[in-house]
Design a protein around this nucleic acid. Structure first.
Lengths: 231, 231
DNA sequence: CGACAACTTGAAAAGAATCAATTTTTGTGG
DNA sequence: CCACAAAAATTGATTCTTTTCAAGTTGTCG
């Protein structure tokens, strides 16, 4: 368990960044390149991971081989709760960009490193809220889903001190579609429609919002109690 | 067990719920009648509750006043994790039938009453699995969703020692529709279609499955890793 | 028995997926 | 740095599914 066998699942109980290892693969240092997996579904993972930088997506694969994306994860999020309950992961988690993660100690540590240890139960609860929010989004209209997603993302950016109006989406249209339960063509069309109405500009993955109020109306009002609890 | 603590209406530390004082005596004993709420969204609840008997639904209400049902809860399930993380409930929970619940102690009890205290972290994780399963179901075809629901319910019945082939659905078509993200008419139609193909019989809420294999095919194969983890 | 609610069924309309073709972007090697 | 190939994104036309609207029918409970 605590043996140092596997590269990237290394528990690293103290959370000490063993970054100084000059091993070529960044995986051992908690660095993932775009397209690399942090977890594969069904895997036995060593510990939950806190995301330090970058973005990841979590997904399960349906019977047609299509991804059902259940979440995008940003810095501050925790992924991989399974060690807390003695389970294998139910989903795969892949970096959408160069990403840095930190394995979290999770078994009764005598000296809690409070700074780097978010309350894991609270994190699990946030995961529930996230899923409920997604579920609710899934029930709305197509335009509503896209609008809601953009507004949520915009809000996240703002919370990170970035612009609420102008940002770059880290995921491809395919990912967005798989997250929102739509066809990629539909996502593309809705974005074009929003653009044609003057609500936003689209330059590949760079979005600039011009009329948040219109998006808000389409999304069905301000973020619900569920989503506002997200942060 | 730990009978000292109180039924969730008793406390009312903020005086918010004082209104319904001399209400049904059953509620104070953890008994809910059909249509009664265990929680209301936004409420500060005292403790998680273990369901002893009956069925409940949890839902959030969207901007159109429609329910988005996020779960049906059966005996053995735990609802109301918010006290563990110091939050208010994000959803409402209503009994679909006469239901008995047991408030669970959740703050560091020195002498854990192990028998009646399921591991709450595990319960929260199960909630996550449930939601992911629902999300995945939401992405499938209409017939697939209904078929999957029936098979899941059938399996639950079997686990409780009841017939896997013949059972009574405790929820109305409306609830089913709100759970599956469909119009009630569509649920009705799909059931009729299944009946016409000879896959099952429908007598109001009494379902008898004749061809589980056909339903399985429509549902897109056996329950995924996610759902099979549910129990 | 009667009134109301729940459920079923039908026809029409709306919406998104699919199929198909371009266009744009990205990545690679010369 | 450019050219080319491959991948991603956009757009259009069509088809298919589900919702919506509108009756009916059945069931429940006083």
């Amino acid at each position: 368990m605590t043996g140092q066998v596997l590269p990237f699942e290394q528990p690293d109980p103290l959370g000490s960044v063993r970054a100084r290892r000059s091993q070529p693969p960044g995986k051992a240092r908690g660095i993932l390149q775009r397209g690399e997996h942090l977890f594969h579904a069904g895997e036995n993972i060593e510990s939950p991971h806190l995301i330090i930088a970058g973005v990841l997506k979590s997904y399960v694969t349906d019977e047609n081989g299509e991804e059902c994306i259940i979440g995008f994860h940003m810095p501050g999020d925790v992924v991989g709760f399974e060690p807390l309950v003695g389970r294998k992961t139910y989903c795969s988690t892949m970096a959408l960009d160069t990403t840095k993660v930190l394995p979290l100690p999770h078994l009764g540590s005598p000296e809690p490193d409070t700074v780097n240890r978010p309350d894991l139960m609270t994190e699990m609860y946030r995961e529930i809220l996230r899923l409920v929010h997604l579920l609710q989004m899934d029930r709305g209209s197509t335009e509503g889903r896209v609008a809601r997603f953009l507004l949520d993302y915009s809000e996240l950016q703002a919370q990170r001190g970035c612009s609420r109006r102008s940002f770059v989406l880290p995921m491809a249209r395919y990912d967005l579609a798989r997250y929102l339960g739509l066809a990629t063509e539909t996502v593309s069309r809705v974005l074009s429609r929003f653009r044609d109405r003057g609500w936003l500009s689209v330059d590949n993955n760079h979005i600039t919002i011009h009329e948040p109020a219109s998006l808000l109306g389409t999304a069905g009002g301000p973020a619900s109690g569920v989503s506002s609890d997200l942060q």
